[in-house]
């Protein structure tokens, strides 16, 4: 449990740093960083639900932070991207891309392809998570608008 809290805090600080790099201003920095904490926390906690596979964990974490970002965007009157892009950073498959190229360098084509497909799978899970949530939010807003 300590490990989970420690890692989530590190994710929080990393996201705050990246919020500054991406020129986010004022209190938005804190909320964007907090999104980073949530994303990594959910990713770690989902390990008990899906012990065998990584991709559902990425998907669930993305769904949660997309909802969080939509709420933040409505409350703080800012585009969703400001919170989403930063909260997503710990989840984006940087490690996968790195492993792919390490195997490429070693000449281990089979492992490289395996890693490559896994990486695109993670990116796909993230993208589908975002699209599903934002489509549902859009539908709800439309419905309220028409009613």
């Amino acid at each position: 449990m300590d490990e989970i809290i420690y890692q989530s805090l590190m994710s929080f600080f990393a996201c705050i740093c990246f919020a500054v790099v991406f020129q986010v201003k004022g209190k938005h920095i804190f909320f964007a960083g907090f999104g980073g904490l949530i994303s990594w926390l959910i990713y770690l906690l989902a390990a008990t639900l899906f012990p065998d596979s990584d991709i559902p964990r990425y998907f669930i974490a993305t769904v949660v932070i997309t909802i969080y970002s939509e709420v933040c965007a409505r409350v703080l009157r800012s585009p969703v991207t400001v919170f989403l892009a930063i909260s997503l950073l710990p989840l984006v498959p940087g490690n996968g891309i790195y492993q792919t190229m390490v195997y490429c360098i070693k000449g281990d084509t089979v492992q490289a392809l395996r890693q490559c497909i896994f990486t695109v799978g993670i990116a796909g899970a993230l993208a589908i998570g975002i699209v599903v949530v934002s489509s549902i939010v859009h539908l709800i807003l439309r419905y309220n608008h028409i009613k």
Binding site: L89, V92, G94, I97, Y98, A123, G124
Partner: peptide
């Protein structure tokens, strides 16, 4: 150390946004 440092270069966000655009 390599993975941590390389996070500032790798195009993870671009890759995710690319798939989002494709779906949209």
């Amino acid at each position: 150390m390599v993975i941590g440092s390389i996070m500032i270069l790798v195009p993870g966000l671009v890759l995710t946004n690319a798939i989002r655009d494709l779906i949209a």
